[in-house]
Design a protein around this nucleic acid. Structure first.
Length: 591
RNA sequence: GGGGGCGUAGUUCAGUUGGUUAGAACGUCGGCCUGUCACGCCGAAGGUCGCGAGUUCAAGUCUCGUCGCUCCCGCCA
């Protein structure tokens, strides 16, 4: 017999009755009846019920063994009597009668139960992640992650893509997120940086004559975390192609996403050709560049209706160039007062000022602001919104950008509170036509709004003749259910365009040459037009698994404060290590 | 850096307008039990109510501070 096992705990069936087996695994649960003891033995593959009869030499050892200890036992597979068959277990028609039993490794008292799928404090879960991962739910998530990676690879290879590796130790780049730095031993005072993304390398691969690149690429950014954003490191399904248009890339990604979601989730994909929504339209209709389009409830611009309105909050905003936007929530008028208060409270965090609501009940408009509106204004409003009796209108008034953001939050609140969101759907969309530049109010200068390596629409001519803030880029995001999965772009591949774009953002030629020497040089030696995208792998798995938090689909995540509680990272290092790296620590003053 | 929520046994939670010895379930330990599958029954141990100050005759409960966790904003080209 094998040293540990002849079978795993998930495979034995009725046809195996009669054979002798050797099983190893964890004591998932134990039922001690005094005379007979049942053990549910668990391994990666499943559960098998083991029966320990009285008189066994190891009976006492079984009585004493604690849950989650690792044991090895031998025994005969027997059929359960019809009244003891457990139909909810895969192996429920058989059981193994123990003939020998040893404890491989005993388990201490557990910090939390492993055999239940309940919520426990994340601190304990992360400190004892090896136990947390034994739990069925987490085990399943990690397997789903592996399947997602495998299917993505398989699909992309079938589509003619090739997987490349790019460096982990590279150079720091001035744009973008805060870098993780790695001090150089050989060059005092100099540093490597971990890549925020393999952006420049994949572009260089295109220039090297390869085509259709992909990599499930680790990326490192020293920025604070969110529920859908791990601190420190994450993975992207990084893709780049030569000689493509934006639409070519969209088609390729739609195939990949649909394949992943059809195969690995139960979500119904709303449209397999994802709607293209221009950035400005998304902001105006949904108040967000990552709209959740599982439901409608679009914002309508009613600014012109309130030019001479008696309601000062509205009128003042309109006169100072602001906007009044309105949402029409169907059949929401009958909601209790708390519903309306909560809508305001939900948006309050956004610095809500001009927020108001009106309910249409019994053919009349009701709410705090109604008395300030003329009959003409009321009629125009109802007509434009297509409002009917029983509906409720929500208003946002203020400067346009803030109002859009504010009412966008209200829209999400209403979508949730009114049950407008069908959670079984996967609603993808492309947000296109991002502006190339944006105004940085703090530094009083023009910045790149997204990716500095994107091709501006209109090329060099646009850069030279248009107002920079009016220039759009071949830059796009893919969004699913209100979660941004990725940005991508058709890249700029010409040195003259690169130079001009960086000049507009305040970088001179010398800076471009010295900070991006590779791309700058490479663009002078025949660069193909190319473009790509990099959907966040962890976020895709999160959506597939229907998890609210990205740490649920990562085996060993850092906590919110970027610490590894299990390994004790980050940690201080030996003085000798610092010396070799020519580093000295200057601690911040203690408060 | 800023804001919201939370903090009671190993774990999940309850704890009334401030009022006697802070409870339950699961887990742990001990005892009983030969067919359970979340086995059942009896018993025991286990608490600085995050920490510190304040108000009060009296604080788990009220106030302030502080620490921790979490979610959000900033940030993430």
């Amino acid at each position: 017999m094998h040293p540990y096992r002849t079978h795993t705990c998930g495979v034995l069936r009725k046809q195996d009755v009669g054979i002798e087996v050797k099983l190893s695994g964890w004591v998932h649960r134990k039922r001690d009846h005094g005379g007979v003891i049942f053990i549910d033995l668990r391994d990666h593959y499943g559960l098998t019920q083991v029966v320990v009869n009285p008189g066994s030499s190891f009976f006492e050892a079984v009585e004493q063994v604690r849950n989650e200890s690792v044991v090895t036992l031998t025994g005969a597979v027997v059929a359960r009597t019809p009244d003891t068959v457990n139909p909810s277990m895969d192996t429920g028609e058989i059981e193994v009668v123990a003939g020998s039993f040893i404890v491989e490794s005993a388990c201490d008292m557990l910090p939390f139960p492993v055999n239940q799928d309940l919520e426990y404090p994340e601190e304990a879960r992360l400190q004892y992640r090896f136990l947390d991962l034994r739990r069925e739910h987490m085990h399943r998530n990690i397997l789903l992650r592996a399947k997602t990676a495998q299917l993505a690879r398989q699909h992309l290879i079938e589509q003619g893509f090739i997987e490349y590796n790019t460096p982990i130790l590279t150079s720091s780049s001035p744009e973008g997120a805060r870098d993780y730095l790695v001090p150089s031993r050989l060059y005092p005072g100099e540093f490597y940086a971990l890549p925020q993304a393999p952006q420049q390398f994949k572009q260089l691969l295109m220039i090297s004559g390869f085509d259709r690149y992909f990599q499930i690429a680790p990326c490192f950014r020293d920025e604070d975390s969110r529920a859908d954003r791990s601190p420190g490191e994450f993975y992207q399904i990084d893709i780049e192609m030569s000689y493509i248009t934006q639409e070519d890339l969209f088609g390729e990604l739609e195939l990949l996403m649909c394949r992943l979601f059809k195969t690995l989730s139960n979500r119904k994909i709303v449209a397999e050709k994802f709607p293209r929504i221009p950035f400005r339209e998304a902001i105006e209709k949904y108040g967000s560049d990552k709209p959740d389009i599982r439901f409608g409830l679009e914002m309508v611009d009613c600014t012109d209706l309130f030019c001479s309105c008696e309601l000062k909050v509205f009128k003042n905003q309109v006169e100072t160039g602001g906007a009044v936007k309105v949402l029409c929530a169907k059949n929401a008028a009958a909601q209790p007062r708390k519903f309306f208060d909560d809508a305001e409270a939900f948006a309050k965090g956004e610095g809500a000022k001009g927020l108001a609501w009106i309910a249409l009940r019994d053919g009349e408009l009701k709410g705090p602001i109604v008395k300030f509106l003329s009959d003409t204004e009321k009629q125009a409003l109802v007509a434009r919104m297509g409002a009917a009796d029983g509906d409720a209108l929500f208003f946002g008034a203020g400067q346009r950008a803030e109002t859009n953001a504010l009412l966008g939050k209200v829209r999400l609140y209403l979508g949730n509170a009114l049950g407008l969101i069908d959670r079984s759907l996967a609603a993808f969309c492309w947000i296109i036509d991002f502006p190339m530049f944006e105004w940085n109010e703090e530094d009083k200068k023009i910045d790149f709004s997204h990716n500095p390596f994107s091709m501006p629409q209109g090329g060099l001519e646009a850069l030279e003749t248009k107002d920079p803030l009016d220039i759009l880029a071949f830059q796009y995001d893919i969004v699913c259910n209100g979660i941004e999965l990725s940005s991508g772009a058709i890249r700029n591949h010409r040195p003259d365009v690169m130079l001009k774009a960086f000049q507009i953002a305040g970088y001179d030629e010398e800076t471009v040459r010295s900070k991006f020497p590779a791309l700058w040089n490479a663009f002078h030696y025949g660069a193909p037009p190319h473009g790509g995208i990099a959907p966040g792998f962890d976020r895709i798995v999160m959506l597939l698994a229907d998890e609210p938090n990205i740490r649920e689909v990562i085996a060993f995540p850092l906590n919110q404060k970027a610490q590894d509680l299990m390994m004790g990272a980050p940690s201080e290092v030996m003085p000798k290590q610092l010396q070799e790296l020519h580093l000295q620590i200057k601690y911040p003053p203690k408060a």
